[in-house]
């Protein structure tokens, strides 16, 4: 299971890459593996929305499961990844790269402190 060291993580299996006051986020390799074949991605956040940390920004569906994706940090949505609408399989193929979900202009950088580093995320206890 890939867990890139430079990223930050949530316990709901979202990742964040920080670029100045911009955060890029997606779901982790572990999350895509748990969902298995992803058939649909709906990004419910719209460009220009101001959303709080923890609000639902996307729904990812496989054949047998649907997972809500929550914003790891609050702020203004400045970009959404439209290509996932047509190619949901990207989430399986390249979760940390081409399958980023949204870019956020963070309103409160201190929220980054709520996130885990790669080591802590790796040690997270799992049900199975």
């Amino acid at each position: 299971m890939k867990i890139p060291a430079e990223l930050k993580y949530t316990k709901n299996d979202e990742w964040v890459r920080v670029e100045g006051d911009i955060a890029v986020m997606g779901i982790t390799d572990y999350a895509q593996d748990q969902l298995s074949d992803i058939v649909f991605v709906e990004i419910v956040a719209l460009e220009g929305d101001s959303l709080d940390q923890g609000e639902t920004c996307a729904v990812i569906e496989s054949v047998k499961a649907a997972a809500d994706v929550f914003l790891p940090v609050g702020g203004e949505i400045i970009a959404i990844n439209e290509s996932l609408m047509d190619s949901p399989e990207l989430v399986n193929e390249d979760p940390f790269g081409n399958a980023w979900l949204v870019k956020i202009k963070m309103s409160d950088l201190s929220q980054l402190e709520d996130l885990m580093d790669a080591d802590t995320y790796q040690k997270l206890e799992r049900d199975h």
Partner: peptide
């Protein structure tokens, strides 16, 4: 049967 992720047996209260 398809699109079952909309349904109660997967989404439950959602």
């Amino acid at each position: 049967l398809t699109l079952s992720t909309r349904e109660q047996h997967i989404r439950r209260e959602q």
